[in-house]
Write a protein that binds this DNA or RNA. Sequence first.
DNA 1: ACCTATGTTGATAC
DNA 2: GGTATCAACATAGG
Length: 251
Amino acid sequence: MPELPDVELARRLIEQRALGRKIAAVDDSDTWVSRPHAPGEIAGALTGATLTEAHRHGKTMWIETDRGPVLGLHLGMTGGIRVDEEPDTRGWDRFALEFEDGGRMALRDMRRFGRAMLDPDLSRLGPDAGEVGREEFRERVGRGTSPIKARLMDQGVIAGVGNLMADEILWQARIHPLTPAGELTEGQLDELRRAMRAVVRHSIERGHAGAGDINPHRVPGGICPRCGAVLEHGRVGGRTTYWCPRDQPAP
DNA sequence: ACCTATGTTGATAC
DNA sequence: GGTATCAACATAGG
């Protein structure tokens, strides 16, 4: 689930429901999700602190506190944020803050690819997919020999685009996912950025990254909702990829 | 039973 | 340096 739009919605949930609340206890006992911290380390830093601001860059969130330490959160592949809900009966609440008022905020994540950590390092992320300017996008994305889809999903190049959004963006821009990034024309790069911004905005409005037009057709035998051709599929950048063989001509 | 699939990211190998 | 592959995890389905 979580690509940039899902993370932005989680950030807004935190902003609306958790800011201003004081932490009475922290469950950081899952040493995999809270790595590299030892159990109790995050608790020691945050207990007694009040949440003040919630931020996001790409798929990474961080929450500032009135005591200095910053809590970084990543939703991984199946994670989500829950505020003031009953603890998960299956044990999927991998990290949680208990508030002084009796409420609770949890990172719920079946697969445990999510992360909770103090003072996350954001320096290796590229510019946010919803904010990047035209020149910077051309320079960062339009280079190298790897398939454009792999380059779009590289969080160090552009932060926030995942598998579903990448397929949607490339389909909107009518660019084949295997096109070597460095072979794209300036016109194609500009079109790609335009499509990316439209998909980011639209997905946030619709509430999740899978809100795009081709997502419902990403099944074997699915058809292009624009021209009706049967979609092609395969693996690009290690991920399952769907594209329209008519609208997105092979490089 | 055993194989595949699944929205992410990091380490490692070529 | 850049690119591809695999492993981390948990579940569902053929």
